[in-house]
Structure formats: structure tokens, C-alpha cells
Design a protein around this nucleic acid. Structure first.
Length: 567
RNA sequence: UGGGGAUUGGUGUAACGGUAGCACGGCUGACUCUGGAUCAGUUAGUCAAGGUUCGAAUCCUUGAUCCCCAGCCA
């Protein structure tokens, strides 16, 4: 074809879709699906799949179905389907009327199974779980055929009907596909299609006591919905022969399964099993604990859907097992937040600063820019007075090299206000600095210097009398190693004990008063923060979404490593 | 010792026989009323060995390493 384009290259999945479009394999249709099991919350690994599934459909004017893969009533709950839908919408995707459940197809699956029995391709097996395992063989040795493999079609039909009718005890019998017990692919060694299980299903309640296995449900669901491209992760590559086998034997519409590598990110875990464990064992406060990699947690922490989508686009889609640097995620986050977050001043660890030559009782309203990246965001007024709070970190009595902030005798700018010079230091009995005295230069109102003199630092501040008291929750990575469990053998041992630091008595400028949960700010020179639902009207609670890149912190840390850590 | 995948700078990802590029990170520097942002520069790579070819990350051969599979989970 002459349609070879010099556009940004397509990933291998999109290329496969493009090829199918060229060859007319699916009559020009593109229909994908996102098939979560409702047994937990969606995490950022799912976001990658979601962006792919919905992205490919959208790129070709096709639909992406949301299908809950609910074939295991033991683990699935309605609260998870609700959470999944909420998170999908938040991420920015719309499945319109295409909301399905594998459990909607149970009757159809049953008929499919019966037709396979009639064809002599499936049989009822009386082996228990342990016996089935023993008969399966190993990776290097073939399995043994079930003693029931030769049952007559009529007997299989009758037995399968009795399984459904509730005449068999849980685990006593299964329906199995008759394929090849010597196959090198263990999935083809007469895989179980149905098991007997008395559990109340979150949707079908007690209508069934037999439930189909994933392999006997997924492809058939895809087929029923006339999916064209069924995208899944690499571990299902071994299942594709079985996916194809069922569809071929059933002689029904046959989508194409394509596998891609799942997402991994440094300093976190992204398997549902592990996330469940973190929640159940109380290592975090819940699925939406802001330290979790779940979408609900990231939302609460202040991540934007745009940042997550940008990240998913940047990591790409391949078959390579990879480990993405969390720094890339944070870059995407900052990139988005920088463009849209209103700036505000907030002091996390307050240190009182008194301007001796500023009139007591006087209050000036200083004009501050809301977002230098967005002129349309306008300005606001911030009250200034004689007694202020600045950040404890912004003062050093004995400033190290390259420390440009406040120190005895040094002049700095108070952002949007005045230049001040430190004249005195007040200490408590323990010798800690508890208050600073300064003088200000009235000629520098607004932070300007009519004489053109320069100061190396600009500090954020709040007026002591006007500031609002707040709680701030500082989050660090949940794990202290890039690959949790890699060296310790147990990822739980790598949990970072300092992943949450709660600061109380923080002071923020009055303009944030009344901000709704979810509202995001940049606290200048500190990072991006977001109002937590735990906030009350009188006392806001902020989550630190991500700190600003901090050149000084890097210098300071490097110096600290060499020793000389004066207290 | 079975089967299925994978292998390009520290990390992620392009290149489809013709100059190994982009992004993140790192490091310089410029600029700055956020030590932010921005801008400029820089660092560093084709798993190995053979072979084919004028020319190989790409094709062939042999080997190495890593991941997945022995649930009546998905």
C-alpha cells in the first residue's frame, strides 16, 4: 500500500489493528473492551490498559465496552463495580451504553458448554482438585488422562445437567475440555470449564451453583459482544491457544487476542493480590489511602486524570517486561499541575518573624499573581502585617555555602511584599530559634527594588494574625526500594516507615478559606497540595500531591552525605 | 531437561537493510520576585560471538540472560 506514513510510529498493537483494517479482517470495525474483575480497585496499571483499549477504539470511531469479568463469586462485590465505574469516569472515559457483565451470559455459556459436550469435546470429570493436579503432570512431563475422559456423550450431558441442578457437592466434579493431556502448554491439558461452587454471586445471587472458568468465559464474552481486538497482558499469551480453541470448536465469531506487557513502576507494587494485602493487613488506611497506586488514592492525593493519561502515553505499549521510573509519572504530574494550579502561600513549619520597624496594627493588602503560567488566572490580595510566619527551613543561623535564604544580617525578599533584613534571633530555653526580628525597607513595597539591588532569595510567608491553621499530610513513596521485595524476598519488609508525615499547626494564607475537597493549589516553593475530604470548614487538611523539584534540597542532601550536619 | 515471550544509554521508548533519535533522570550554564517554571548545552546505548551484505539494532546461526505457565483465580 502507498499509505506508509511518516507520522509518529504506532505501537505494535495499533499497528496490528491498522493491518486488520487494511485487510478487512473485521469488515472495518474496531471494537475493544476493558474487562476488569470486580474484586478490587483499579490502579495505574489498569490505567495503561484503559488508555489502550479506549484509545484504540476512539482512534477508529469504534466502541470500547466495559465488561465486568465476574465469574468468581467468592471474590467479587458490587462495591467494586461501583468503584471501578467511578474511577473510569474520573479518568475521562465513556463506555456509553456498552456496560456488560460476563454473568449476563451465563445461560449462553451453559449452552456453549452443552454443545461442546455434544461434539465430544467436553466431559464431566469426577476428579477432585488434588487429583486433577496430580493428573496434570509437570512442566516437563505429560499429564495422565482422567478416568472419566471416555464417558459417553449422553452420560456427560446428564451429569452436566445434574451439576447445574445442584446434585453435586462443591468441588466434586468439573466439566473439562477434552484436548490433550500431553500438550506442552499446560493450559491445553483438559482445562476445567466449569466448577461446582455454592456462593452467592453479587448479581445472579443463588441462581447458579456452577460457574465458568475465565478461559471458558472471556473469549465467549468477546465473541458475543463482537469484539474485534481483545487486548490483555502477557501472562495470557499461554492462554491464547485455548482462547482460539474454544472459539473454533464452538464455531462462533472469533476476535483477535493481542498481549502486551503490564505496567510496573519503581517504588510501588501493582498487583491486585498485593494491594489487597496492603489494605487487609492495615499497612494503609484503605483502597484510597493517598499512598496507594490505585486511581481512587491518586485522585484523593491530587493527581489529575490528564497527568495519568499523559504518563500512560509516554510509557508506550510493547511486549518488553519493563519497570518505569516513578520520576516519569511525577514529571507528568508536575507538568500538568504547574500549568493549572493556582499559587498560594503556605507555611508548613512556622517560625515567627517580627518586623520591628513596621507599624503595629497596620495591615497592607499585597497583590499576588495567581499563576504565572496562566495570565488569565488573575491576581489576589494577601494581607501583610508586622508579625509573620516564615518557614523554619528558610532560616539558618550559620548558613552553609550556597544557602541563599535568611540568616543573621542577611536581606531577603518576602514574596510580593518587602525586602527584610534579619537583625535578631530569639531562642527558647532549649536553645532553639523561636523568633526572628527583622527590619524592612519601605521603598521595596511589592518586592521591587527601586535602586536595582538584588537579593538571592525570595521567601513565602503568611501574616500571623490572618493565616488559617491547617493540617498537612506529607507523603513519601510507600516502599523504600525500587523493586519492593527484590532483595528481602517479601515486599512488606520494604514498606517505608516514613511514608506519611502529618504536620499540624501549619499556616496558610486566608484566600484558601472554604476550598472544597479535591481543590488543588501550589504552595509556592513547596509543592502541589490538594484539599482532603477529611477537612472541616474550620480546619482544612491538605495532602501533598508531589513536592516541587528542589535544587537546594539536592545540594543540602549532597552536603549532608559528606558529614557536617550542624544542628 | 517442556512450552510461551522478551533483550537498544541509569529508566522508558523509536529506527521495519542506509547518519542509532525522542522523553525522563543526571550534570553544566542562562534567566527568574517560586533554588519552581522556562531556555541552552551535555552525559550515556544496540546482550554475546560468528556469518550474509558495499552497508546490520534490523537478515541467518549459535549461545547468554530475564519474565510467564503445573488454581476447581483472573
Amino acid at each position: 500500500m502507498s499509505t506508509a506514513e511518516a507520522r509518529p510510529s504506532l505501537d505494535f498493537v495499533r499497528e496490528a489493528v491498522a493491518e486488520d483494517l487494511r485487510t478487512g479482517r473485521f469488515d472495518g470495525r474496531v471494537v475493544t473492551r476493558f474487562p476488569p474483575e470486580p474484586n478490587g480497585f483499579l490502579h495505574i496499571g489498569h490505567a495503561k490498559a484503559i488508555c489502550l483499549d479506549f484509545g484504540i477504539a476512539a482512534a477508529h470511531g469504534g466502541a470500547c465496552h466495559l465488561r465486568f469479568d465476574d465469574t468468581n463469586p467468592m471474590k467479587e462485590e458490587n462495591r467494586f463495580v461501583e468503584a471501578i465505574k467511578r474511577d473510569l469516569r474520573w479518568l475521562g472515559f465513556d463506555w456509553s451504553e456498552h456496560e456488560y457483565f460476563a454473568s449476563d451470559y451465563y445461560e449462553q455459556f451453559y449452552e456453549y458448554a452443552v454443545s461442546l459436550v455434544r461434539k465430544g469435546r467436553a466431559y464431566v470429570c469426577d476428579l477432585g482438585p488434588d487429583e486433577i493436579r496430580a493428573h496434570r503432570g509437570t512442566l516437563t512431563t505429560p499429564g495422565q488422562e482422567s478416568p472419566n475422559r471416555g464417558r459417553s456423550i449422553d452420560e456427560n450431558l446428564e451429569l452436566f445437567e445434574r451439576m447445574r441442578a445442584g446434585e453435586c457437592a462443591d468441588g466434586s466434579r468439573t466439566l473439562r475440555a477434552k484436548i490433550d493431556m500431553a500438550s506442552p502448554n499446560l493450559n491445553m491439558r483438559d482445562p476445567v470449564m466449569y466448577r461446582v461452587l455454592r456462593a452467592t454471586h453479587h448479581r445472579t445471587a443463588d441462581a447458579w451453583c456452577i460457574y465458568p472458568m475465565y478461559d471458558f468465559a472471556h473469549g465467549q464474552s468477546d465473541s458475543i459482544e463482537r469484539i474485534t481486538h481483545s487486548l490483555c497482558t502477557l501472562e495470557f499469551e499461554d492462554h491464547r491457544p485455548l482462547y482460539d480453541w474454544f472459539l473454533d470448536e464452538l464455531e462462533i465469531y472469533h476476535p483477535r487476542q493481542i498481549e502486551f506487557a503490564r505496567l510496573n513502576i519503581t517504588y510501588t507494587v501493582l498487583s491486585k493480590r498485593r494491594l489487597v494485602q496492603l489494605v487487609d493487613e492495615g499497612h494503609v488506611t484503605g483502597w484510597d489511602d493517598p499512598r496507594m497506586p490505585t486511581l481512587a488514592a491518586m485522585r484523593r492525593r491530587g493527581y489529575t486524570p490528564e497527568a495519568i493519561r499523559a504518563f500512560c502515553e509516554k510509557v508506550g505499549v510493547t511486549k518488553t517486561n519493563s519497570l518505569s521510573d516513578v520520576a516519569l509519572l511525577e514529571h507528568c504530574l508536575r507538568d500538568d499541575l504547574n500549568a493549572r494550579s493556582p499559587r498560594v502561600m503556605g507555611v508548613l513549619r512556622p517560625l515567627k518573624l517580627v518586623i520591628d520597624n513596621y507599624p503595629a496594627g497596620q495591615v497592607e493588602q499585597m497583590e499576588a499573581v495567581n499563576n504565572p503560567e496562566d495570565p488569565g488566572a488573575g491576581t489576589r490580595e494577601v494581607p501583610f502585617s508586622r508579625e509573620l510566619y516564615i518557614e523554619q527551613d528558610d532560616f539558618r543561623e550559620d548558613p552553609p555555602r550556597k544557602f541563599f535564604r535568611l540568616a543573621p544580617g542577611r536581606e531577603v525578599r518576602l514574596r510580593y511584599a518587602y525586602l527584610v533584613t534579619c537583625t535578631d534571633v530569639v531562642r527558647n530555653d532549649a536553645g532553639e530559634v523561636v523568633e526572628l526580628h527583622c527590619t524592612y525597607d519601605p521603598e521595596t513595597r511589592g518586592g521591587t527594588t527601586p535602586d536595582g539591588r538584588k537579593v538571592k532569595a525570595t521567601l513565602h510567608w503568611v501574616s500571623a494574625a490572618h493565616a488559617i491553621e491547617a493540617e498537612v499530610r506529607l507523603y513519601d513513596r510507600l516502599f523504600r526500594t525500587p523493586r519492593p521485595g527484590k532483595d528481602t524476598g517479601n515486599y512488606v519488609d520494604d514498606i517505608n516507615p516514613h511514608s506519611l508525615q502529618v504536620l499540624t499547626g501549619c499556616r496558610v494564607e486566608p484566600s484558601v478559606c472554604g476550598a472544597e475537597p479535591g481543590h488543588r493549589y501550589q504552595f509556592e516553593r513547596q509543592g502541589y497540595f490538594c484539599v482532603d475530604p477529611d477537612s472541616s470548614p474550620t480546619r482544612p487538611v491538605f495532602n501533598r500531591t508531589v513536592p516541587l523539584r528542589d535544587a537546594w534540597a539536592k545540594i543540602d542532601q549532597a552536603a549532608g552525605r559528606k558529614g557536617s550536619k550542624a544542628s
